[in-house]
Measured scan of single mutants.
Amino acid sequence: HNLTITQGKLFFHYNPKLCLSEIHKMEEVSGTKGRQERNDIALKTNGDQASCENELLKFSYIRTSFDKILLRWEPYWPPDFRDLLGFMLFYKEAPYQNVTEFDGQDACGSNSWTVVDIDPPLRSNDPKSQNHPGWLMRGLKPWTQYAIFVKTLVTFSDERRTYGAKSDIIYVQTDATNPSVPLDPISVSNSSSQIILKWKPPSDPNGNITHYLVFWERQAEDSELFELDYCLKGLKLPSRTWSPPFESEDSQKHNQSEYEDSAGECCSCPKTDSQILKELEESSFRKTFEDYLHNVVFVPRKTSSGTGAEDPRPSRKRRSLGDVGNVTVAVPTVAAFPNTSSTSVPTSPEEHRPFEKVVNKESLVISGLRHFTGYRIELQACNQDTPEERCSVAAYVSARTMPEAKADDIVGPVTHEIFENNVVHLMWQEPKEPNGLIVLYEVSYRRYGDEELHLCVSRKHFALERGCRLRGLSPGNYSVRIRATSLAGNGSWTEPTYFYVTDYLDVPSNIA
């Protein structure tokens, strides 16, 4: 807008934040220059609390790290170098490059900038070799853009010569660093050979998330399962459950009422301010606690030095998902009996873990797994792929695949051998790939016309006998059925096997 004052003059007093240069501009645009008398524009009460600059400061050096910015700028000295009290560095987070010096300023003089007072450097006698002032900004957020400017702080001049310097606002972004852990990993099994893994992005990506790394490792069953005799009275049979499938998407929606109208769909109840505040506090606490764990609990591995020492970490090797089922080394339970199943799973520490690289999504279907087997899954978020990966501390989750139908069934015939004193040795093959492992066998036998009897055969007993022995049988026709019990439950009964026990007292003698 054009402003013209045809008559009258300007009068400025007691404006401590208004620089004289701005008042002189007002004289020019209003056409009143030359009308004012000496005392109409006070030299001592206008701009006496402001830094009124008329020179431009330029930054000469900028260096960044993930949490620091090192700045240096060209030296500046007023005509009387004693008038320079120091520099004021202003900075704040700036997602967009549209910041002005006066953003967030209120009537009390406060604003949204963080201000650092910096002492002037030592003055050199040689004007050509003056030290460049600077400042190291610490405690910054990774991968965050900051708006920065600097200006001088000078003393009051009796001659009211307006001098000083100020830089333009520059924008500097800190470097990326390792992201925080992925949030809320959930693993479920939808079949006997697959596990579905879902997660949420890290709360602090500290860069642009480029991919996720998912490692999985087959877990050995508890050692007590191999040692305890679950045929003993009072000892509860062990059981394991597989990871249940995901709930429906509708039930997972946030901010939804727990109660549904019987007449149909209901609208979600909005969260109160107290609920939102509580969630923010919980989120802040979780982030602080995660940072504490990362800094205190997890110790970084030592990389190899120039002395030739090897990095103890196993090298990563990509495998196809079809090879995942046989990740671990199978060892027989008892070496003397080769027909026992290889369900003991000690994992070799030198073995390469299978892994998958996930790009542009937060889910993965891990296939080719062994049925009813526990897996430990390790999830890392990465925001750099080359020249070397920059990934987060791992988040861990466990899951067990679903049982395989008929995996616990005894394959092959049940054979028998009759000894003296009416002892019958029953023999059968253990299931080759049971659900988890076989903890015991149930032997059901009966003599024709009598009630059915049951015998429990422990895992250890089966390994020693290759089956079991029935003792003290009365003469007669017998039928026997056997079924295995694994961590997933009972298998199917075998087809009945028949044998006849004679009275050993009636056996004919070869003595003449």
Rank of each mutant, 00 (worst) to 15 (best):
L369C: 15
L364R: 08
R466C: 15
L225S: 07
V327S: 12
Q384M: 06
L464S: 07
F289R: 06
L369E: 01
E452H: 02
G472D: 11
P496L: 05
E247F: 13
P338Y: 12
S223E: 15
P349V: 03
A263P: 08
L453V: 08
G308M: 15
E362F: 10
V324F: 05
T307Q: 07
S486L: 01
S262M: 12
M427T: 15
T502G: 09
V296W: 07
Y441A: 01
A263L: 11
T288D: 11
A407P: 02
H254I: 07
S243E: 04
G264L: 14
N490T: 11
R318C: 12
P338N: 05
E260N: 15
H371P: 08
R469A: 04
V457K: 05
D261K: 08
P354H: 11
I377F: 06
E265R: 14
E282P: 13
S479D: 02
A330D: 02
K233V: 15
T497H: 09
D503S: 13
R390L: 10
P270S: 07
P387K: 11
E310V: 03
P312D: 14
A395V: 11
R301S: 09
A381D: 00
Y498F: 08
E417Q: 13
Q256T: 08
E281Q: 10
P238I: 04
K317G: 07
P238E: 08
E260I: 15
K406Y: 06
E404Y: 09
E282D: 15
A381L: 01
F499M: 03
L225A: 10
T497C: 15
I366E: 00
T333F: 05
E351Q: 03
D222P: 07
T303R: 11
E430F: 09
K406D: 07
R483D: 00
L293P: 03
V439K: 15
Y441M: 01
L473N: 02
R318Q: 03
L455Q: 09
G491S: 09
Q252M: 03
Y504Q: 14
F372L: 06
S243F: 08
K361N: 10
R400Y: 05
R313A: 13
S344N: 06
E389L: 10
V324W: 05
A330S: 15
V457P: 00
R459T: 05
E404K: 10
K278F: 10
G264V: 10
Y441T: 02
P312K: 08
G325F: 12
L437W: 02
R471G: 08
T386W: 12
L487F: 05
N360L: 06
V397K: 12
R376I: 13
G264S: 08
C468M: 12
D291P: 07
G449D: 11
W428Y: 01
R319N: 10
V359F: 05
E290R: 08
H211L: 10
D222Q: 02
E227N: 12
N435H: 01
H461G: 10
R313F: 12
L455R: 08
D503I: 00
E452Q: 10
Y230R: 09
F215I: 08
P270A: 13
E388L: 09
Q219A: 06
L426F: 04
Y259N: 12
P431S: 04
T272S: 07
Y441G: 00
D291I: 08
V393G: 03
A335R: 12
P475A: 09
F462R: 06
S342N: 04
R481F: 04
T303M: 10
V345D: 12
N422I: 03
D323H: 11
V299S: 06
E258L: 14
F226G: 10
V345Q: 14
Y375T: 02
V299T: 07
S262I: 14
S283W: 03
R483V: 01
A309V: 12
C468F: 05
E465D: 04
S444M: 07
S486D: 01
W242L: 10
N360T: 12
I209G: 10
P346V: 13
H254W: 10
N255I: 08
N255S: 09
D323A: 09
N208S: 12
A336G: 09
V424R: 04
D506E: 05
F462E: 02
L473K: 01
N295F: 07
S344M: 07
S251T: 13
L321T: 13
L237S: 05
Y441R: 00
